[in-house]
Design a protein around this nucleic acid. Sequence first.
DNA 1: CGACGAATTGAACCTATTCAAAGGGTGTGG
DNA 2: CCACACCCTTTGAATAGGTTCAATTCGTCG
Lengths: 251, 251
Amino acid sequence: MTGRRKSPLEIDVTEAHMCSVNLRLHILSQVPFFAGLSQADLDRVNSLFNEQGYAPHETIYFSGDAVKHMFVVADGRVRLMRHSPSGKDVLLDILTPGEFFGSFSAQGDEVYHETAQAHTQTCVLGISVNDFRAILEKNPQVVLRVLDITSARLQAANVRVHQLSALPVEGRIAYLLLVLCAKFGKPGNDGVLIQTPLARDDVAAMTGTTSETASRVMSQFQKDGLIRTGRQWVAVIDLFALEEIAKAEIS
Amino acid sequence: MTGRRKSPLEIDVTEAHMCSVNLRLHILSQVPFFAGLSQADLDRVNSLFNEQGYAPHETIYFSGDAVKHMFVVADGRVRLMRHSPSGKDVLLDILTPGEFFGSFSAQGDEVYHETAQAHTQTCVLGISVNDFRAILEKNPQVVLRVLDITSARLQAANVRVHQLSALPVEGRIAYLLLVLCAKFGKPGNDGVLIQTPLARDDVAAMTGTTSETASRVMSQFQKDGLIRTGRQWVAVIDLFALEEIAKAEIS
DNA sequence: CGACGAATTGAACCTATTCAAAGGGTGTGG
DNA sequence: CCACACCCTTTGAATAGGTTCAATTCGTCG
């Protein structure tokens, strides 16, 4: 019935998207900062989470909402974004199973600073900030891991600041494709497919440009044989060439 | 002898810039994540730090250097920056006494991802990453505080990404001045003086533009009576107007 | 005072945005 | 199974915002 589809993306068409208990435990054990816990601790932690399914474009929380939960992606893709009154939204990140979002500062923020939205069919595990803080206070190694992850994200954010400040659009898009490739890449027939829906709008919102410009740049990349792309999908063919473009700053 | 100076900035002209033992202890006790320690612990921590003086523009470490120390600013101002091959540097932050820099992920990065440079006469306290990690492992509350600070910085970095993506230069500079005002502002005769040397180049490097454009924008701000500015200094007069300009697009 | 570095200002140029219209893939409903 | 409608994508042309290069002015310190 979908034999006509040209898109190489594997899509998940489950209905009410709930995850099995097995999947839950598997996911939690894969979350980097719970990796060190014993099976017993893990079971206890698991019982503190409750799950929730979301359809594409459904909002998990809005920027400005009071902080109540910390979340882990169990299945699907979650978008983290910031809004502007002008309507020009910024896409901070696309999260994949095992990644967490929401509040994770120990102090506890008052409100969320970004909006979380289901990007695909999604199952999300949530834990109240109080419960999460209790886990942090009881398990010092967990805090250290959370700190590591937060540091890495700060790192990545600074790279992005650098690029937005110093690189032209071409370079920023080239770099973005490399990052997404490292995160979502599945080697396929020709090139590495970025296994997530990815519209020109998304690329634009992640690189601080417009969908038209993103389209122009990516069309050029395709003409030059660096990528293959279609509606909502991209596959990277020539990683090395993209690296060169991302690194090349107008001397 | 400096009666001819027009600059309202208070500058520090000490020679070899070393800080007294009293100052050291005072600074360390003010560092947010050592705030909870007992006097005895504080003394022990203090003995693990060694101090170092720097003249303006001296480099504390280079981006790419192997990570060996974590630092705390004791006196003066420190610049954190990233380089580009093109020479277009990005200024990530200007640090003030009590703030820390260098590596602080528990895992330990291999190399520094940014360059630290003295912005003024500066005294810096350094601790080896091993010693610092030992403190983290012994004092869980300290880790929680480090996590909070890191989260706050991630927060700020994301705001910057948002602005670079969605705001025109005018708005970004207006916002920067507000941030610097909150951090360095000293109320004075007319307006709030930003108590740190601040060249047009610096403003440009923090907002992703050129010094010429920064100059044009700030000249306009001055004409409109929003700020007073001279060589290497800025005082903010109309906070509210700047907020309006900065908010023009931000939620 | 004199010299150097910082700031200003002008004009040409260029990148990326904006507005607009046409072309294509996807999946739904007939 | 086809056809249509919807949304994503492409492409074009005009415009604006910022950069670049260059020349001048100004402030600060020796």
